[in-house]
Design a protein around this nucleic acid. Structure first.
Lengths: 121, 121
DNA sequence: TTAGATATATTACATATGTAATCTTTCTTT
DNA sequence: AAAGAAAGATTACATATGTAATATATCTAA
């Protein structure tokens, strides 16, 4: 695997939007984030540009607008974050947390089977 | 539950040591971290002091040494981190995350069985 | 064709973080 | 008692991050 650049907390929100739908314009990103976040449009543009600088996001020109899209697979980034997250915790505290998480998620039968298969490895 | 201060990545390593055993001296913290981390003793002292500044760690004087101990419950910090971690992810990316978890943790047979039982709910 | 409007580019600035080194105060050991 | 060792306090400094504002280029409407 390549080295995935560090994506900050705020930048993750932008990536989430792009993984949901892309390519999209900066204004669409802004529109999708303004409900949940209290960021000014300029702030969001800064985040987008930083992600471009990190090669996490690319764009094509469409007239004088840009159409942005993610350059990194979501699964890779998630895996990376998870690894660092789990790396911070001591082993003992993870199981209860994971238990709560699994309970909270509604998993399909298929997903459950797949998880069990992963556990068997 | 008060407002838990932000604990950085590096600071987490110090907190882990303190949750494992406390109160302990700075030198003991350093000794326990030097195997895993490649930090200089001074670096670790800086981290300790920052944690003290954040009221995440307290100390008692023992002669001219200090004995440090955590001021924050591990469970609270873990919950906080987990919340922020899950907040970054879109729903449906659970599987890669679990893959990382399973890979990272060395789970015993018992633990695997326990997780499978949880999945069977 | 000219003044907005609008998109992107550049600049700003405080705080956080990683990563230490140097300074000061005490203990110890000759 | 003086010098060196050791603990803690203070200072350092580059990069990251949150959070924008200002500058510039370009399109559009009057």
């Amino acid at each position: 695997m390549e080295n995935i650049p560090k994506i900050s907390d705020a930048e993750w929100q932008v990536m989430k939007v792009l993984w949901e739908k892309s390519p999209i314009t900066a204004n669409e990103i802004i529109a999708r984030l303004e409900d949940e976040q209290s960021w000014k449009p300029k702030t969001i543009r800064t985040l987008i540009n930083r992600l471009v600088g990190k090669n996490a996001v690319g764009f094509d020109k469409d007239g004088r607008q840009y159409l942005y899209y993610p350059l990194l697979p979501e699964a890779d980034c998630v895996r990376d974050e998870a690894r660092s997250f789990f790396g911070r915790m001591r082993a003992g505290v993870l199981k209860p947390m994971l238990a709560a998480f699994i309970e909270q998620q509604k998993l399909s039968k298929d997903e459950i089977e797949e998880l069990k298969r992963m556990l068997d490895r």
